[in-house]
């Protein structure tokens, strides 16, 4: 036993934990499949990628730092309106629109993070909910700027990188969304494997203990909240650019609730959870689009109850447990 422990190399052990796995590579390669297998569904695929990006942004605060938000659509909508307004008023270059969406959302996220970091539990839920509703109502009333309930019309995008037109079949849209998703994912993957990522998990696991080991939790929370808002803003901007319109719905409670459902269904705190959730949720919604919305939400409701009761860590959590049991049996 003593010899085993002296041979143990902690750094190599932690390194092995962060290594890319075959499953991950397979996942990203399979994201290219729609180009060949489902060329008629590239518009849907681009929306899935955007939703996955939005879910990824929520995962950073919910899955890693344990901050429950019922108003995350606020940042999604801010990004969407920023990018949409920029393009509507004569500057249709996509990448600068993405940057603007990220910056505006990050700024608002940074300012609100001072409030967010002070609260937890019910008060936090109420504040995020209230903030989301407030922004939704603001956009609704500011008809001159946002078009109110009619949505923002007249968004015209220039070709991506000056070369790729946004086409009707969503080819450019999906390629664009997928590349952005992958780039942001690389950043978040690095972040979650960093010392900062470890501190975030510490906050999720035990917020009370963190100050007692000298950790400035409030500063950590402000930082991740701002970053999460920026990513949500990018996702919103992507939606505005690829659909060339912004509806009030981008700011709605419904969207905040949907992304929560998506993340929890897939499994929070593992980056890929939101992706799995987004694929299932969006494909199902596309299949059942003939259904009246009420029945769709009956399904969502049953799903939520079932996940909470039987699958507390989502689909990926369940799969991980299954895999662990399998390995346990094998050895």
């Amino acid at each position: 036993m003593a010899s085993a422990s002296s041979a143990f190399a902690p750094q190599a052990y932690l390194q092995a934990q962060t290594r890319w796995r075959a499953v991950e590579l397979a996942f990203w390669l399979s994201c290219l499949l729609p180009f060949v297998l489902f060329p008629n569904y590239l518009v849907l695929a681009s929306q899935i990628a955007i939703t996955a990006l939005f879910a990824l942004s929520l995962d950073l605060i919910l899955g890693y730092a344990g901050i429950v938000s019922l108003g995350h659509a606020a940042f999604f909508g801010l990004g969407a309106y920023s990018a949409g307004l920029l393009a509507k008023h004569g500057w249709g270059e996509p990448l600068s629109g993405l940057v603007l969406g990220a910056v505006v959302a990050a700024l608002v996220g940074y300012v609100s993070s001072f409030v967010i970091a002070r609260f937890r539990h019910l008060t936090l839920i109420m504040i995020t909910l209230g903030f989301g509703l407030l922004l939704h109502e603001l956009a609704n009333k500011a008809h001159w700027l946002t078009g109110g309930a009619d949505g923002l019309q007249g968004v015209r995008m220039w070709p991506l990188l000056g070369a790729f037109m946004f086409d009707l079949w969503g080819f450019t849209a999906y390629a664009y969304a997928l590349i952005v998703l992958f780039a942001v994912f690389l950043v978040t993957r690095r972040l979650t494997n960093s010392p900062f990522g470890l501190s975030l998990r510490g906050i999720r696991e035990n917020p009370v203990r963190m100050p007692a080991i000298g950790a400035p939790s409030v500063a950590h929370i402000r930082k991740i909240y701002t970053l999460s808002a920026a990513i949500a803003g990018i996702a919103g901007a992507l939606l505005a650019q690829t659909t060339e319109t912004v509806s009030l719905e981008t700011l709605s409670f419904q969207r905040s609730a949907d992304v929560l459902v998506i993340l929890v269904l897939g499994g929070a705190g593992r980056l890929y959870g939101g992706f799995v959730g987004a694929i299932i949720f969006m494909v199902a919604r596309d299949r059942f689009s003939g259904l009246t919305p009420q029945y769709w939400y009956f399904g969502i409701g049953v799903l939520l109850v079932a996940v909470v009761m039987f699958l507390p860590n989502g689909i990926l959590g369940g799969l991980a447990r299954l895999a662990a049991a399998w390995r346990g049996k094998a050895t």
Partner: peptide, 12 residues
């Protein structure tokens, strides 16, 4: 999550 789910069901 549980109670939002129940609320969704009740609406439907």
């Amino acid at each position: 999550l549980l109670t939002i789910g129940i609320a969704f069901i009740s609406v439907a």
